Amino acid sequence: FKNNDALLEEIQRERGRELLGEFQRKFDLVRWGIWYQMTYEYTNYPTLKDNMLPCHEYYPIPDKEVVYSGGALDNKAYNEYGM
């Protein structure tokens, strides 16, 4: 590979072929920071596109756990969308 970007792209594609339809696939996409982009671009379901937001990359942290952590644990991305 001529550069690191090309190598990373090939690794991402290979992992996609290996894990097609498996639960771990989302964790790979989240780890690489491309979950929203890839899911949105490659779905043909209008309902999913209408309801999917970038904040859905991570699950919301329950209020009880946020309080226990003293506010250290919080997914502020949901606030941007009024959730």
Rank of each mutant, 00 (worst) to 15 (best):
K26A: 10
G33T: 00
Q37L: 14
K2H: 06
Y81K: 05
Y81H: 08
Y45P: 03
D63E: 01
N4L: 11
K76L: 01
L48Y: 09
R31A: 15
N4V: 11
C55R: 00
Y81S: 01
Q24C: 02
G82D: 13
N4F: 09
Y36F: 15
N75G: 07
E41N: 10
Y59F: 15
G82Y: 08
L7T: 14
A72F: 06
N79E: 12
E18Y: 14
E22L: 11
E65V: 04
E14Q: 14
D5G: 02
R17T: 06
Y68P: 09
R15E: 11
G16R: 05
F27Q: 12
Q12W: 01
M52R: 04
K76A: 03
L73V: 01
Y78Q: 09
I34T: 07
D63V: 06
L19C: 08
L20F: 14
R25T: 15
E57H: 05
L7W: 12
K64V: 05
K26E: 09
R31I: 02
E18K: 09
A77E: 03
N75M: 12
K2Q: 13
F23H: 12
L73K: 04
Y58M: 08
I61F: 00
L73A: 00
G70R: 03
N51W: 13
K26R: 09
Y59P: 05
R17D: 11
M52Q: 02
T43S: 12
Y58C: 04
R13W: 03
A77V: 02
G33D: 05
F1H: 14
K2A: 12
N4Q: 10
P62M: 00
K64C: 05
E80S: 13
P62G: 00
V30T: 03
A72Q: 13
P54R: 01
G33Q: 08
K2C: 05
R13G: 04
G70I: 07
F27D: 13
P62E: 03
Q37M: 15
E41I: 01
R25L: 13
F27V: 06
L48Q: 02
I11T: 02
T39W: 00
F27M: 08
F27T: 06
L20M: 12
G21K: 06
K76T: 05
Y81E: 09
N4W: 14
K76H: 00
Y42N: 11
Y36N: 01
E41L: 09
D5R: 13
E18H: 15
D63L: 07
